[in-house]
Design a protein around this nucleic acid. Structure first.
Length: 872
RNA sequence: GGGCUCUUAGCUCAGCUGGUAGAGCGCCUCGUUUACACCGAGGAUGUCGGGGGUUCGAGUCCCUCAGGGCCCACCA
């Protein structure tokens, strides 16, 4: 084996650029379509990858979980699987809109006409400059153009980062959730849901974000603890008495439709079936019983409004109550009073109309105080309130017309099927399935997919208008071959564009789909569903879904749902769930805490292999602590990568004596055989670990033996490898060393792809196809097997004995404060007789002139006499 | 309120189907320039969160208590 190409001083610096370019040029990670067709679906390992939000910034958590995914990909590739490993960008939706608003200083006003030569007032604005008043209103089309422009730039940066990190993605297989291809898939899936009755439009109370003025789905809710106050307020009974309720939302008194108490509550039983009148407005409302009312909360009787919270919605529905809406979509009190408010009540209402919730509450408290209906002072409390996860004002509930997709919340049979699909997926770790099951079991309503926003996939339907301009009948749908369409610009079939918005004409749906309605279809989008049936048949269902645990209820659940509705199967065989990153104080990393470090900076500073090692040393599902000030694990990873370079260089610098036989037949020394046998066990353990998606265990076992290999074995045999004990011993050592390194490099290849590729290239260069080599990239080389080591995997335990003896000798020298190079004139070592098989190596590394053994169970240095270190 | 998960050396964590404590970092001592100073060798460090139980034997199984984290839950 020639070692002419060994570097003088190997280094990690520059390997990312060098090998990134080489992999790209050689197509190392390309999906081999022809081979896949020939080999069938079982030859393909397909990964459903998370499309990162293009408008967001990548953080350390992304690096963490994407590395986990890549470890599985690289292992499977080396096992001979044909990798279908695409990458997408989630670029539609609210985050992009918000970023565009801030970046360019604009906002979308759909009423404005398109301006062809529009130049944004700002370029590169940040979140801090997001004053709505300063933003220039632009047309929807101009706005979308800016969205597309900015996301394209963001995506380029993301790709660069992923390449630097060494993700072995096939970059010819990319998609954007806003791209035509994804839109077509999303619209087609929707139309099929519609045709099968799984998608429907309904007027219903909807959680509504007043800032973004859009409906939001259950999965996007987040509870926040906020300050509030209990107000004790008197309602009036017909006989002049009062019933006191407690509310945190007195501004909703005009929206009150009933009082509700628990059926068993003796305090209110006499009132059930009677009516009371509301304070200030004098509206007559019934007192009713319902089991959801809690006797120990507040005064035990609750005011039901249109709508203060989701319980109100339940009561409204189950008790068949009326509606008195007072809140508009802008979060302000409506100008028109609801039904039932009359006379003086109307004047009171007029004082509130147009006010925000906040100021309406302040005013109504004043009014209650004046009327004497406020009992005592408001009691401050802190209570959980529902927020849109991206919003900063509490959600309101307003009745709007929205699109829904069934999700099993109201359909036990579907719910059971979804749970069954969840059981068909192997979760890693397994307990993450519970989160899925909790979510499926706790669904409270169908999936609201429509959003009143701009940058997203349009809901592809039109509506017929009657002579009054009201929508009537079933929606008009396009044919699948027309997709993707925008009903706002495309004329409905059977109509002229002039009829748009006219009586007896048509109107296009203006809502778009929520981003999850698109990203729930990533397997279909990436896999060429309907557009490329051959490909789809090869990759779907996928082998692996890799994602963070925070989006089980959104992305994971919705993907299972869409696959079940469309294909009747689970979308993947495995789901790998990564934990998240916590700072040293065990708090989740967040921008507000200022503890976020940029991945690009980390990769640059420590090297990609080092950062990957850090990620790989955490198991799936486990949160990882990370201290940007002291990235210990990263430094250890860097040390490993450097050690691999140096050890490989050293090992390959040896040459077998002329005429030595090749292959494992040359390996005859017991210590060499023993080392390889142990390595065989390492290979077996690491392989099983990777098969079970336990990359951390695989790394640990390989790494642990690697250090034994370099610190003990390599030290023990290097004299022999130089030829000190004859040709046969030399050949045995050299062959064993080089075989072992070849195996180690492949074991480490998934974790540190750059350093291992560098080492591999020294002896397996693509032009060389060196002896015993596989040619090309280590990442295309076969995963190591026990068989190729040419030894029985049961080792005799010789290496640990020799290591123990070596430690004893070293300790004697250390105790004497002597150099390890100090010669030993005479030594007696106790230990099992097996140990004597390594006498030559032990004497050589210890520089022992006269070495004798004494049989014993335990290894110990019985006698040792140090000589003089010869002058330099 | 329900569920999941964690609690092992100063720190970060391994300890798989129960057999009597491990790694790395940090720390202390020593060494070294023909693989590696982005280095090497040696050393010290733990009533395995508390309490019960099963067992010949428990960090490992069961119960219970305490604390951390996360997810879910009907916000009066």
């Amino acid at each position: 084996m020639s070692h002419a190409s060994l570097p003088d001083k190997p280094a990690l610096e520059g390997l990312e650029a060098k090998w990134g370019a080489a992999w790209e040029a050689q197509g190392t990670y390309l999906f081999d379509r022809d081979a896949a067709v020939a080999g069938g679906p079982d030859s393909v390992y397909s990964i459903d990858t998370p499309p990162p939000t293009a408008s967001g910034s990548l953080h350390i958590g992304h690096v963490f979980s994407y590395t986990h995914m890549d470890l599985a990909a690289r292992f499977q590739r080396m096992r001979g699987q044909n990798l279908f490993y695409p990458m997408g960008w989630d670029d539609n939706g609210l985050p992009t809109e918000r970023r565009v608003q801030n970046y360019y200083g604009v906002r979308c006003d759909p009423s404005l006409p398109y301006s062809a030569d529009f130049t944004p007032p700002l370029e590169g604005g940040d979140n801090a400059s997001s004053k709505a008043a300063d933003q220039v209103p632009i047309s929807r089309r101009n706005f979308i153009e800016l969205c597309e422009r900015l996301t394209a730039e963001d995506e380029k940066q993301f790709e660069d980062l992923w390449r630097t990190l060494g993700l072995s993605v096939d970059w010819t297989q990319t998609y954007r959730t806003i791209g035509d291809h994804a839109q077509r898939a999303a619209q087609r899936a929707f139309l099929r849901n519609l045709a099968r009755g799984e998608a429907y439009r309904a007027d219903a109370p909807t959680l509504w974000d007043v800032t973004f003025r859009t409906a939001v789905a259950q999965a996007e809710l987040e509870d926040k603890e906020v300050p509030g106050a209990f107000h004790r307020v008197s309602f009036h009974t017909p006989d002049g008495g009062t019933i006191d309720i407690e509310t945190t939302r007195p501004e909703l008194i005009p929206a009150c439709v009933a009082l509700v108490a628990h059926p068993d509550d003796p305090r209110y039983q006499p009132y059930f079936g009677t009516t009371v009148t509301t304070p200030l407005f004098g509206v007559e409302v019934p007192v009713m019983a319902h089991h959801l009312a809690q006797q120990d909360k507040g005064s035990g009787i609750a005011m039901v409004c249109t709508f203060g919270d989701v319980t109100d919605v339940v009561w409204w529905r189950e008790l068949d109550l009326g509606l008195r809406p007072v809140l508009g979509k802008d979060g302000r009190i409506l100008s028109d009073a609801p039904d039932g408010i009359e006379g003086a009540g109307l004047e009171t209402y007029a004082e509130l109309a147009g006010k925000t919730v906040f100021s309406a509450k302040a005013r109504i408290v004043e009014l209650l105080r004046e009327s004497g209906d406020l009992k005592g002072e408001p009691r401050p409390i802190t209570h959980p309130v529902k927020f849109f996860e991206k919003g900063d004002k509490p959600l309101e509930i307003v009745t709007t017309r929205q699109w829904y997709i069934v999700n099993g919340a109201r359909d036990e049979e579907l719910n059971a099927r979804l749970l069954q699909r969840g059981r068909e997926v192997d979760f890693h770790p397994d307990y993450m399935r519970v989160r899925y099951e909790n979510w499926v079991g706790g669904l409270s309503g169908d999936w609201l997919i429509s959003r009143q926003r701009f940058f997203g996939v349009p809901i592809p339907v039109w509506y017929r208008l009657d002579e009054n301009g009201e929508q009537v009948g079933e929606p008009i749908v396009p044919t699948e071959d027309q997709l993707p369409i925008d009903p706002s610009s495309l004329t409905a079939p059977g109509f002229d564009e002039a009829q748009r918005g006219q009586p007896k004409g048509f109107v296009g749906e203006v809502d778009i789909m929520d981003t999850w309605a698109t990203s729930s279809l990533t397997p279909q989008i990436a896999g060429g569903w309907e557009d490329d049936p051959e490909l789809f048949g090869l990759v779907f269902p996928y082998d692996l879904r890799s994602q963070g645990q925070d989006i089980i209820r959104t992305w994971l659940f919705s993907t299972v749902l869409r696959a079940e509705l469309e294909h009747g199967v689970a979308p993947w065989k495995n789901a790998g769930i990564s934990g998240f990153i916590v700072d040293p104080d065990r708090k989740k990393m967040s921008k507000s805490k200022g503890n976020v470090v940029t991945p690009a900076g980390m990769l640059d500073e420590h090297g990609s292999d080092a950062v990957r090692y850090w990620a790989a040393s955490s198991r799936l599902g486990t949160d990882a602590a990370f201290d940007p000030q002291n990235p210990k694990q990263i430094k250890i990873g860097r040390r490993l990568a450097i050690k691999v370079l140096n050890a490989a260089k050293f090992v390959y610098s040896f040459e077998a004596p002329a005429g030595a036989i090749s292959g494992t037949d040359a390996i005859t020394e017991p210590l060499d055989i023993d080392m390889l046998a142990t390595l065989g066990e390492v290979v077996r353990t690491a392989t099983q670990a990777y098969e079970g998606y336990d990359h951390a265990r695989a790394l640990e076992v390989a790494e642990q033996f690697f250090w034994t290999f370099t610190d003990d074995y390599l030290e023990l045999v290097k004299e022999r490898a130089y030829g000190s004990q004859g040709a046969q011993g030399q050949a045995s050592a050299v062959r064993a060393l080089q075989l072992a390194i070849d195996v180690f490099v492949r074991l480490f290849a998934p974790v540190i792809p750059f350093a291992t590729e560098e080492v591999w290239s020294w002896t397996h260069g693509s032009e060389g196809h060196g002896s015993g080599g596989y040619g090309g990239s280590v990442h295309r080389a076969p995963w190591p097997t026990v068989d190729e080591l040419g030894v029985d995997a049961q080792h005799g335990g010789l290496l640990p004995l020799v290591s123990a003896a070596l430690i004893g000798i070293r300790r004697a020298k250390t105790d004497a404060k002597a150099s390890q190079k100090t010669p030993v004139t005479r030594a007696v070592i106790a230990g099992p007789t097996l140990l004597e098989l390594a006498a030559g190596d032990l004497a050589a590394v210890g520089r022992i002139a006269e070495l004798t053994f004494s049989p014993a169970d335990e290894v110990a240095v019985l006698e040792i006499e140090l000589g003089e270190l010869p002058p330099a």
